[in-house]
Amino acid sequence: MTTSDRSTQLAERAALFARLGGHETFELLARRFYEGVATDEVLAPMYEGDVEGGERRLRMFLEQYWGGPTTYSEERGHPRLRMRHAPFRVTPDARDRWLTHMRAALDDAGLDPESEQAMWDYFVRAADAMINTLEPRP
């Protein structure tokens, strides 16, 4: 990739981040999502009392993924989502609960329909990819 191509790509990603509402949108998404997670009997135990840390990590990851600052990778390295979720029992039920809370957060974000659909499609694919067991909790 040439320097010019890289500059164009960075500019396009920055424009996407701005179109989505920038930091404020991702802060709202993470906060609203974790408001739901904090009271979810399946998901809340996975955070072992660190919902605030989870909220920050999710916000940073989403900002980076959608063209914003690369703070997530600078602080935590490559996202490696599947590896980071491997210690947890991510069942289809956990996936569905995750998507329920993310859907509520996304609905509150007030994005334009095209952006909202693009984000929702990503969330569904990512949630599906995190499933690592079909066995319910013991």
Rank of each mutant, 00 (worst) to 15 (best):
L81T: 13
L134Q: 07
V90D: 03
Q9M: 08
L58V: 14
L81V: 08
I131F: 02
E63L: 02
Q117F: 01
A15Y: 05
R82D: 10
T100Q: 13
H78M: 14
A94T: 07
P113L: 06
T100E: 15
I131C: 02
R59H: 03
D5V: 09
V42A: 14
R76L: 08
P79K: 05
F123G: 06
E114H: 08
L20N: 08
N132W: 03
G54L: 08
G21F: 00
D107A: 11
R19H: 12
Y47F: 15
P136R: 03
D96P: 00
T39V: 14
F123H: 15
A38W: 06
P136Y: 03
V124I: 10
R80K: 07
A14S: 08
H23K: 10
D96S: 06
L58A: 13
P69F: 05
D121P: 00
M1C: 10
D121W: 00
L58P: 02
A44M: 13
L16N: 05
D112N: 09
H78K: 10
T3C: 01
L29R: 05
S4A: 10
F17R: 01
R57S: 07
A104Q: 12
T8H: 11
L62D: 05
L62K: 05
R125F: 13
W98E: 00
Y122M: 10
T100V: 10
F61I: 11
S7W: 05
A104L: 07
A94V: 08
F61R: 06
A126L: 07
W98I: 02
T100F: 13
T25Y: 00
M83F: 15
M46C: 05
R32M: 05
F33S: 14
T39E: 13
A129I: 11
G22Q: 05
A129F: 09
Y65C: 06
P136F: 04
D93S: 12
L28M: 12
A15G: 02
T3N: 12
F26K: 01
R97D: 04
D112K: 09
Q64C: 03
E48L: 15
R89I: 01
T91V: 04
W66Y: 15
A11I: 00
A15H: 13
A86F: 07
Q9S: 09
I131G: 00
R95N: 04
T71L: 12
